[in-house]
Amino acid sequence: MRLRGIKRFHYARDVEEALSLLSAYQGRAALLAGGVDLARAARGDLEGLIDITGMGLSYVREEGGGLRIGATTTLTGILENKAAQGYLGGFFCEVLRQVAAPPLRNMATLGGAVVSAHPWADIPTALVALGAEVRWSDEKGEHRASVEELWQGQFRKIFRNAVLTEIRLPAWEGAFAFEKLSRSACDIALLNCACGLGIEDGKIAWARVAVGATPRRGRRLTWLEDFLVGNQPGEGLWREVRDRVEAQVEVSSDRRASGAWRKAVVGPLVARTLKRAAEKMGDA
């Protein structure tokens, strides 16, 4: 299936124009930024394409230790940005470097990753762990939500008539780490994990843990976060984490990996990710 029915190609100058075009097509148009997912799963019903890369939404700005990233910023654009490189000791760039291959990262946008939010993708797992917030506009006005809230709802329906504008990554006093298991260097994950820790007086002050590609989309393990707080990082704790995660995290099979294998490796994966985050804090 290709984009065979396209009759018109538009360059939207701003969000308002993009929205009015979307509305005029009544569902038969799509926004185009990186185009990666549009090319992967091309829809035969589309008549219009609306290019949104010229609306000033390609930027990375540091704000109070956090990042504001315009929705049409490419993954390469983020990787090359100084502020992004400095954010959380380079954590977010560490994640993006493991996403797909350089030619695809030159095309793919962060907004695209949020709007598509593939269950096997790495970026949603990282954004959930970070507690990222997204902003979008529709005909009713501007909206904001955490990615967790967004993805719990019918987000695909929202973005049929809305323009995602910005992704905000909050500041954290601590360190994050990301681990991924895949078949080859450019492959999607068979399982991924993003963890963050704050350590005060040798004890875990806060924790963020998200596991994705289970094969479901990345989601937090809040029960594990609660358990971690107050504990001292160390091999004993990581062993405990490993056992608890293995016992409690729900995983299942898809054609890339079986539930049995995911069950066997999810504990070690979370434990090693947490350990690496703690090591980044200089406190393993």
Binding site: R40, S184, A185, C186
Partner: peptide
């Protein structure tokens, strides 16, 4: 065939 594409069928790339 369930994986008749290069997204699902993995061949080594230069990075591998």
């Amino acid at each position: 065939c369930l994986n008749a594409n290069l997204f699902d069928y993995k061949i080594p790339s230069s990075l591998d």
